[in-house]
Design a protein around this nucleic acid. Sequence first.
DNA 1: ACCGATTGTTATAGACCATTACAATCGGGC
DNA 2: GCCCGATTGTAATGGTCTATAACAATCGGT
Lengths: 161, 161
Amino acid sequence: MPPKLPSPHRPRTLVPIPRVGGLDYDVLDRLIGYALRRAQVAMFLAFHEATRGLEITPPRFTALVVIGANPGISQTTLGNVLGIARSGAMALTDWFEGRGLAERRAKPGDARAWGLHLTSRGERFVARMKTKVVAEDRRRAAVLSRREREELLRLLNKLAG
Amino acid sequence: MPPKLPSPHRPRTLVPIPRVGGLDYDVLDRLIGYALRRAQVAMFLAFHEATRGLEITPPRFTALVVIGANPGISQTTLGNVLGIARSGAMALTDWFEGRGLAERRAKPGDARAWGLHLTSRGERFVARMKTKVVAEDRRRAAVLSRREREELLRLLNKLAG
DNA sequence: ACCGATTGTTATAGACCATTACAATCGGGC
DNA sequence: GCCCGATTGTAATGGTCTATAACAATCGGT
């Protein structure tokens, strides 16, 4: 058997959080936080599956979508949207520029900040990504009825504040 | 102003994922995965708040609860429950032993595996933790009605598979 | 014109987790 | 009773993600 090639990027969690038979979960079964975590890992793995080979992670996906929908956005704002520090937003931006997906352009009226924009290659890439990710999200959520899905979205957003 | 002491352990995300006004979220608003992530971060921060000073993270909490409810469980099984590799389960166990919360005991009938058990100090610690975490989970979920909470739990578990 | 705030940047450190390799032990088939 | 593949715990290593701190350039209000 040939040696396994190292994956170019690895999801941080590789396996779903299982429900081990015959085990007492005690209070965990009553915690929304725990159920949330399990569901999130499941959806994350689906995401990773859908974007296989694209080297895309959830933060990268979110960032690209946000840049695409809000051209000229600053790195600081991008960081705020993602809930990460500015240095992290910068690392993301570097990564995008390194692959020709997005670029920094001078911002008229403020010489400190850059405005972020997708390249045309980035536009195509994001469009393809969105299709795949949305399809996978739908597919994974297909265990729920349309009504349940709407309800879940509503409850989650309420919870997120 | 006195220099800020380094926190003994830092949550990986320090701020909630906000909803930035005037921003176009494009397709993100329709993705369950994204809503899930936002809700999870919010609950995680609440968790971190509730366990302030205890140096407890969600995996540590889960592990201690599971050990408490299933004394004699092996490290490998613990890893499976958490969805992490054996080496990670071992690091957790070391951490617990280092603080006198849990211990490895020889397992009758299998000289390879250890059986994990809470110490009496661990028992008290877990009891206190459970109280705090459950209370905080309830408090945070109080934006939902009882009926909504039940429904959310059901939908999340369905999604997690 | 000055001064506090903001922006991007760099360097550094820490937490978390997987991978790999290894030794001891187990257990089923012969 | 012995052998061999599977399992368990362990140690060493590396990668990824993110925060923190410090810095220079720039902005903007007083």
